[in-house]
Structure formats: C-alpha cells, structure tokens
C-alpha cells in the first residue's frame, strides 16, 4: 500500500502516526529508480556477452549448446568474446587444477562489473570424481559462483535451464549491489 499526496481523505480519517506504522511509502523518485532498474536488468539479461573458460571435455557440450540445434543465442547470449575484458558472463567449463587456479582468478578479476559466473559440469562445481592432489574441489573455493550445472557432461537442456535461472537472478538484482563490498581474494 502506498500513499500519494492526493489521498487527503485517507489522511483525515486516520491518525497519521497510526497510518505510517506498517505502511511503506514510495516516493516518485523510488518508483523511477525501480523502473530504471527494471529496464537495466531487462537489457542486461538479454545481452550477456560470454567468456568460455574451457579446459576439458565439457567444452564440446558447450559448443553443442552454442550450435544451431540448441542455439544459446535465442536467449540473448549470442556472442562469445575471447577476452574477459569484453564479457560479463564467465563460463567455467571443465576441471580446474591448482596450477590453473591463479589464471582463473586473474581472468575473473579482469572482467568488468557487472559480472556473473556459471560453473559448468561437476568438475568445475565440486571437483567431480577428481579428488586428488591436483584438482580444485569446486571453483566456488576461489571465485563466487552464481549458477551451478551438474552432469558429466551436462545435457544442453540443463545448460539452457541454467542460463534462464541466471536471467531470473539478474532480473531480481538491485542497483545497490554496486555499492556492496567487493569480492576480494587476496
């Protein structure tokens, strides 16, 4: 329930303090910000520039999903950029070893805000069946992850589902995230 300045009848009938107790007041400024956010999120979620960080066999499945039969481009994620500086969605496709972990962190830090990460397949999400001296047990121990895709390798339908989940997440995001504490891995 919101109160506009024109609602003088309501104001006169009830005590003002009682009225404001459990009512959220939205001014025109707030409304315009939320409208701006909606437009911004809508445009962001349908123009994801992706950077595929492909290290293993999952990359073949990623190519299948990008290909004409499943066509990730239908959902707005059309263009893979081959520089992290030009992209805002990082796909970590495949096993990440401890030797490779600094490279992945560097790639993530090179991406401009806003940025999102999808962990593609079990190896990237949890280490998969590689529980040994070489493999990172899930990339969420080195960079933050937005969406996880299980499967070894995942079906293309799962990948499309993950992209739609990410779009829903982008749609929900607020403008305040810009001012929240930055992720730091130092």
């Amino acid at each position: 329930m919101s109160i506009r300045e024109g609602d003088s009848n309501l104001r006169s009938n009830m005590g003002e303090e009682e009225l404001l107790k459990d009512v959220v007041i939205t001014s025109r400024l707030d409304e315009s910000i939320s409208f701006f956010e909606k437009v911004l999120n809508w445009s962001r979620k349908y123009s994801l520039f992706q950077y595929p960080f492909a290290t293993a066999c999952c990359a073949m499945e990623y190519m299948t999903t990008m290909g004409p039969r499943y066509d990730l481009g239908r959902f707005g994620a059309e263009v893979p950029r081959f520089s992290p500086r030009q992209s805002d969605l990082l796909w970590v496709v495949g096993t990440i070893s401890h030797k490779l972990a600094p490279v992945l962190v560097r790639v993530y830090e090179q991406m401009c805000e806003p940025k999102w990460v999808i962990s593609y397949g079990v190896c990237a999400s949890s280490g998969g069946f590689y529980n040994n001296y070489a493999t990172v047990q899930g990339i969420d121990s080195i960079i933050p992850v937005d969406v996880y895709i299980p499967g070894c390798p995942p079906r293309p339908e799962q990948v499309l589902d993950a992209l739609i989940l990410l779009q829903e997440k982008i749609d929900r995001s607020k403008a305040e995230w810009r001012f929240s504490k930055k992720y730091d891995n130092k």
Binding site: I142, K174, S180, Y183
Partner: peptide, 23 residues
C-alpha cells in the same frame, strides 16, 4: 607415502562458511 588428502593451493581458498552469494 604422499598424503592422499594433501593439497597445495596457489591461491587462498575460501572456506565453505565464508562463501558469499553476490546480491
């Protein structure tokens, strides 16, 4: 005789309880 669960990471690993979801 190399310990089976020994890891030697090059970057600082974030513990599960410290992992934050971005807003």
């Amino acid at each position: 005789d190399y310990p089976i669960d020994k890891r030697q990471p090059l970057v600082k690993l974030i513990k599960p309880e410290e992992r934050r979801e971005r807003p």
